[in-house]
Amino acid sequence: MEFLRSLKKEDILDLFSHEFCSHCQALLHSRITTLRKRKVDEICSLDDECFESSGDHVVEMSFNDDASNSESLTKRNESPRNCSQRRDSDTSVKDDEKRVFGSSSGNLVGCKQSDFELLLNDGICEGSSFKNGLSEERKEQIRYSLVCSKKDFSLIERINGRHINVLQGLELHTEVFNELEQRKIVEWIYRLQWRGQQGKLKDRTYSEPRKWMRGKGRVTIQFGCCYNYAVNKSGIPPGIMRDEEVDPLPPVFKQMIKRMVRWNIIPSSCIPDSCIVNIYEEGDCIPPHIDNHDFMRPFYTVSFLSECKILFGSNLQVVSAGEFAGPISLFLPVGSVFVLNGNGADIAKHCIPSVSSKRISITFRKMQPNKLPYKFSPDTDLAEIKPLVFSSLNK
């Protein structure tokens, strides 16, 4: 036991998960992280110096663009053009900000209430000295202050005789979901995948096509609506299939939406009512495209398991199976939210080249009112969500 106590979390994970599949590794990692955090909280003390130093936390993120577009994101003491520093809030965080939407779990038979829990306001950062004695409101304020946002992406291209910034409208918000939350969400996605494989989800919800060539055959799970990616056998063009039914948004995804609205990432005027989960294996990709206008702008992609690059440009080239070329590439870190809007969503195409390791993404979108499925019912859990309003940071 003394030997185990001397090991770091990563060492313990490697020791116990040797030759495990990635799914089992993720489950074990999640449990170790949760146990470690619980023990840290029991022995940590809250002191003023620690709280003061939280304002100096630095997060750096590089974008692998061409030379003129590469730069680092620095969390603190940088121009507000590149980083938005979050503020204190005078509003209280209600209990339902850290609880689940119990009213919507009936469609997922055989799952415990704990399956839906997402620690939105806890776990400020792994191994921090913030104790659970800190109010939930204060925890959320501190977490919110750690989010770093970039909104000044630029790529000038000549379109119809005019020079325009085809990346206008793109945003990247990092540190939105911490490591513990990412593990919880990924664990839930694997559970959904298992349910799909067992036929416990509606037919059009889960899709696992045959991998007949490199880049083809990624697993998708759709909620809220069924989207048709290509002209089907009946000659129906790509778009929302209004007469098809899929499962509604799971509670954990609604918790994610609620956080993103509260943290001013999703505008309250465009709260998503559908999403698609993409589960990539090594070599999987998404070819160049512009998202169908059956969905409103903006829409939002959250990344898990591994970072990947996304290419943009008005003219993206297919080099080979799963490999593409374009004028600019951006990196999407794990736990980040990427917002596509404006020219970045409507003029520039985007694609995900073949990924080098397993990756999961969730893309949240709001359907156009005249494209809603015929049997669609608005979710009352997502109504009346309001963003946080912060006053100046007190030190």
Rank of each mutant, 00 (worst) to 15 (best):
L340I: 02
P373L: 03
I362N: 03
I236K: 13
L372E: 14
S149E: 12
S22K: 07
S103T: 09
R31M: 10
T174E: 15
L311V: 05
E140D: 14
K366C: 15
C148V: 05
Q182L: 02
N370F: 14
F390T: 00
E126D: 15
I385P: 06
I185Y: 07
D66N: 11
W263I: 03
N132V: 04
M256C: 13
K366S: 12
L120A: 14
R162Q: 15
V147N: 06
S53Q: 15
R38Y: 15
R359Q: 04
F364V: 03
D284W: 09
C44M: 13
F223D: 02
K375S: 15
K39S: 12
E179I: 01
K151L: 08
V355L: 04
V339F: 01
L192D: 02
N228Y: 03
E157K: 02
F312M: 05
G123D: 13
S114K: 01
F116V: 04
V93T: 07
R38F: 13
K94S: 13
E140S: 12
P272C: 02
N107C: 15
H57K: 13
N292S: 09
K139I: 01
S104N: 06
H163C: 14
S207F: 07
K233C: 14
N343R: 00
P353F: 07
S54E: 15
H293C: 11
R76H: 11
